[in-house]
Design a protein around this nucleic acid. Structure first.
Lengths: 253, 253
DNA sequence: CCCTCGATTTTTGTATCCAATACCGGTTTT
DNA sequence: AAAACCGGTATTGGATACAAAAATCGAGGG
């Protein structure tokens, strides 16, 4: 019998630790945009040697979170509002392709079971009278699941990789701005619209309607675009710095 | 006066050397798919120490050319014919987005000058009676340039990065299969069709017709799909191994 | 004959070491 | 006073050292 509990110590523990921590530090602004990332300063902060930190930095550079300085070393990349909007649009485009591919593949009932279940759960969630904070985190989980399953249904490894990579960019994830909705009076309506999208995307896939599936997935990503706009104007009202980062708001999520 | 000749010795020369060489070795099959990449074996072959090799491998893993083995180390990734087709489709999708974005941006004459020039040169090239091998390499250069400029016109850093990354995948580049055309009797006709696409994509951008530009860019990528099919059936005729790699053919390019 | 187990030998992941060079401040010079 | 110069420090890229894990291979047992 296998005695292996979840004591999974990956062989490259230090590197993944550095990668996860550094990514988090960049995303939540602990390492401000434009700041040079001195490896030594990270060494004391994380307690791992330079080597895994450098590996992690290379990965982050490929992901696009840091830039490789010509003179050597890395700086935290600055993301303009336009960059964030572009990421969302690109995600929408690629998820559109995924939806079309899924529809054209004509998956059978078994393959569709999970995503149907997911949509069903979302339906049930939305139907509740009041939406507590727990409900919102459930929503985020289910929403994430829907998007993952959609990509899975496209059955394309390269598409999957490309989409997953872009999700690491700041605010590109499908629910990066759900926390904005949760504060909006029309929150429930937005969720209903999104859920209507989910349902019809699934329907289009079931019917093999590739074009419709694609168009809907793209339209779906516009919700994120709108939430981004709201977040930006909220922030603009709060402090008068126009294009500044959204990091503060995000911490509440 | 600046005495600096092109003695550009980048600070990280070893790493880029390892990256370029390793990428080439993977792409031309010197490192066959499925083979584990032992760092030591690379050390003697390239004459650089493990550290830069390791960096390069991490980058290649992010690019998708090698996979990170759960047990540790890297293996050359296997690309199925479907993977190659998917890469082309994804490139077409993203270039479609680029074309639409370019059209919606309404670039002015100055911004369009280069791509117009490029299309003009392509026109002149196609009009020649006979196409020599030199002409074909000119075509490849100009075609590459057209696609780069298209992405440039979209003015989206994140889109640009995503497209450039996928171009590193095997046979994903816009002219990966032009060498197939060059052997085909209908070669000239295919080039004409492609050029017609180039012209109308530019026209759509000039007129601000985003949807048309997108549709055309996508259609344009179908040429690559067809060339892939031809290459595959060619190879299937030659040796009877169905899904085998296209590497042999590529070496002639 | 095949399978299992164990010792040997690679190979990896991480830490450290070294040389080169970019950065910073003070100094000098015009 | 401003700009160029210079020297010291800090930091990076690359090489190496070392320990732990994994593949390899052979012997022994079923």
């Amino acid at each position: 019998m296998s005695a292996a509990v979840a004591d999974d110590k990956p062989r490259n523990a230090q590197t993944v630790k550095a990668l996860l921590k550094l990514r988090e530090m960049v995303l939540n602004g602990e390492l401000p945009p434009g700041e040079r990332v001195a490896e030594l300063s990270i060494v004391d902060r994380l307690g791992v040697s330079r080597t895994p930190i450098r590996m992690a930095l290379v990965r982050l550079e490929e992901e696009g979170l840091v830039d490789c300085l010509a003179t050597g070393g890395f700086v935290v990349r600055e993301f303009s509002d336009q960059d964030i909007a572009d990421s969302i649009e690109l995600r929408g485009t690629m998820e559109g392709m995924a939806a079309r591919r899924a529809a054209e593949r004509r998956p059978d009932r078994a393959e569709l079971a999970e995503i149907r279940d997911c949509v069903g759960n979302l339906d049930a969630l939305i139907r509740r009278r009041e939406l507590s904070m727990d409900d919102f985190s459930d929503y985020i989980r289910l929403n994430d699941r829907f998007h993952s399953l959609l990509v899975e249904l496209a059955a394309s490894a390269v598409l999957k990789r490309s989409i997953e990579r872009i999700l690491h960019l700041p605010f590109a994830s499908p629910n990066a701005f759900v926390f904005v909705q949760s504060e909006l009076p029309e929150s429930r309506e937005i969720l209903s619209i999104a859920q209507e999208h989910h349902r019809s995307i699934l329907e289009a896939i079931e019917h093999g309607e590739g074009g419709r599936a694609e168009a809907l997935a793209r339209e779906h990503s516009r919700i994120a675009q709108r939430n981004l706009q709201v977040a930006l104007s909220n922030q603009q009202q709060r402090d008068r710095i126009p294009g500044a980062s959204l990091i503060r708001q995000r911490e509440r999520a």
